[in-house]
Design a protein around this nucleic acid. Structure first.
Length: 275
DNA sequence: CTTTTGACCTGACAGC
DNA sequence: TGCTGTCAGGTCAAAA
């Protein structure tokens, strides 16, 4: 799935096709996502105009004036645009659960095999939604800095890997980029967050920003079932330093990449480069 | 309060 | 070929 770079890539891909457009029709083929898609959504959305498409953490927020459509891609979700000229009638696949049909017949189609994603509605200020109101800082803004990260982690015995993936600490850092950023910063994923000092946090913050920014520039990483908004597979030959490289040689020192599990998630690291 | 575990769901793949 | 088990990008909710 989509980690932050994939969600941001999706946002950039779909925004030009749907911003400023009025919603003609909404089709919910399967409302059973992580939470039920609200029954009243089709009648609520019809006739509203999409003012903007913004991202907060891994949520895509379609501002419709009176309220906001909240979308999350979960582990396996993808959005695509079916342009009015060609494919507006392209038959939906097995896992195409949701369509937003615009007045010019452009279709925004959500596919999500595992159904961990979400389509929700919030009236008024979207940031007051329970899923959004307690989120930590965006990783690519100045709000995410070493000083605040240091302060927030004092006394914590949770591993730095799991801390990076905690969205009260910082949003949008998923499993792949948590592993990659820790490698870049030279930090062992098992270290308790409370035992890391300012100098190392400065390196880590830079590594997180760099890793995510690079991935966004690459147009999203190679996830098995990610589909770009133009409908082509989002396979980019992304080179990972450690993720998925158990038993292979470290590209930096030639040592062997180790695999461990932390909180039921896979972690990969180089014991020689990461202390 | 903090930290860990379970749950949600389908598909791909390895091994028998 | 078909079955079983394991694993996968996320993250909320409940248990410890």
């Amino acid at each position: 799935m989509p980690e932050l770079p994939e969600v941001e890539t999706t946002r950039r891909g779909i925004a030009p096709h749907i911003e400023g457009q009025t919603i003609a029709q909404v089709i919910v083929r399967n409302p059973r996502l992580r939470w039920p898609v609200p029954d009243e959504l089709p009648s609520l959305l019809a006739g509203l105009t999409i003012q903007s498409v913004v991202r907060r953490a891994k949520y895509l927020l379609l501002d419709c004036g009176t309220g906001t459509l909240i979308m999350h891609l979960g582990m396996s979700g993808s959005l695509r645009i079916l342009p009015p000229t060609q494919n507006a009638e392209l038959p939906p696949g097995k896992h195409d659960h949701f369509d937003l049909i615009l007045r010019d017949r452009t279709v925004l189609r959500l596919r999500d095999p595992r159904r961990f994603g979400a389509v929700l509605w919030q009236t008024g200020d979207v940031l007051r939604h329970p899923l959004l109101q307690n989120l930590g800082p965006e990783p690519l803004t100045a709000d995410f800095d070493a000083t605040r990260l240091f302060a927030k982690t004092r006394g914590s015995r949770v591993s730095i890997k799991q801390t990076l993936m905690n969205h009260h600490v910082v949003v949008g850092v998923g499993n792949i980029y948590a592993n990659e950023a820790l490698f870049l910063a030279g930090i062992n994923p098992k270290i308790a967050a409370g035992r890391i000092g300012m100098t190392r946090y400065e390196r880590l913050v830079q590594a997180v920003k760099h890793t995510l920014q690079q991935a966004i520039e690459a147009g999203g990483s190679s996830l098995r079932d990610f589909v770009n908004s133009d409908g082509t597979p989002g396979y980019f030959q992304q080179h990972y330093w450690v993720y998925g490289r158990e038993g292979q040689r470290c590209k930096q020192c030639g040592g062997i990449i180790q695999y461990i599990r932390q909180g039921q998630r896979a972690s990969f690291y180089c014991p020689a480069c990461q202390h």
